[in-house]
Design a protein around this nucleic acid. Sequence first.
DNA 1: TTAGGGTTAG
Length: 336
Amino acid sequence: MVYKDVVAWSSMITGYVRVGNPNYSLELYTKMIDLGFDPNGFTLSAVIKACCEIRDLKLGCGFHCVVIRRGFEENNVIISSLIDMYGKNYDFSSALKLFDEMPKPDAVCWTSVISALTRNELHEEALRFFYTMHRRNGLLPDLFTFGSVLTALGNSGRSRQGREVHAKIVTAGLCGNVVVDSSLVDMYAKCGVVDGSQRVFDRMDKRNSVSWCALMGGYCQKGEFDTVIELFRTMEEVDLYIFGTVLRACAGLAALKSGKEVHCQYLRRGGWRDVIVESALVDLYAKCGFDNYAYVIFRQMKVRNSVTWNSMISGFAQNGKGSNLLKTAAISSSFS
DNA sequence: TTAGGGTTAG
């Protein structure tokens, strides 16, 4: 395919990123360059976003060089894409460096760096940036900013500040957005204020799987596992994330029957081979005394991580399988 | 024609 000018190429490249085909966007970009067209700001922000989607840090760095070479360093749209790309690829120091070099970052750039810090679990730093953006620079946080800030507040267990931010969201008239409301449910849940989560959840007009998952996570954290299982049974649509939480509740109760039902439902969905859910299954069966079955799942897993190994090893330990335990522990140590 | 947000396991 050949387009007549760089505007047409950019529209196509941007369009394919938007519809979730970043690889094709990058192919188009290569073709465009091969045909001798020069990328403009629109093209570059789109391909950087594509690198972000496919989690290709190396290629993203390459585009960062192109941005510098072509003199787009003061383009806020491109820089916020780059900050986001570095943040999502867990290179927060590059994200921070880029942000620090900006003479006058706008609210979106502040939000991008707050999100990069939150994603890299630098929650206190993210909150410092949020207050600086707001108080010292007079920039107004929006829906996107609050989404990240609530994550940082929840993960650092700051319920008092969480309530203050909740008040700001109400004042700004931003309640009613499903992402912000779900983030509030999650913030209260992670702070151990599950009644706060429930209140926000009850007032929501529109809920999605994130809202449910956040609420159920709150009850799990409180040890109210029966409530989690009850909530799960009332859900009409479930997604991958829910399984991890509900299996944690089943394991907490050593509820083999419920666990098996959830396991069947997970298998019926088909296609998912998720390390988190499968690790939760290993833990569930081991806690219910079925370490042999836990081991069957463990062996079939395509991807294992430290949680999987720990669940299996402690499963053997709990069930008095000393020799299996030592064998598994020895193999796991060769992976670390 | 372009940028940024939320949820699972030991």
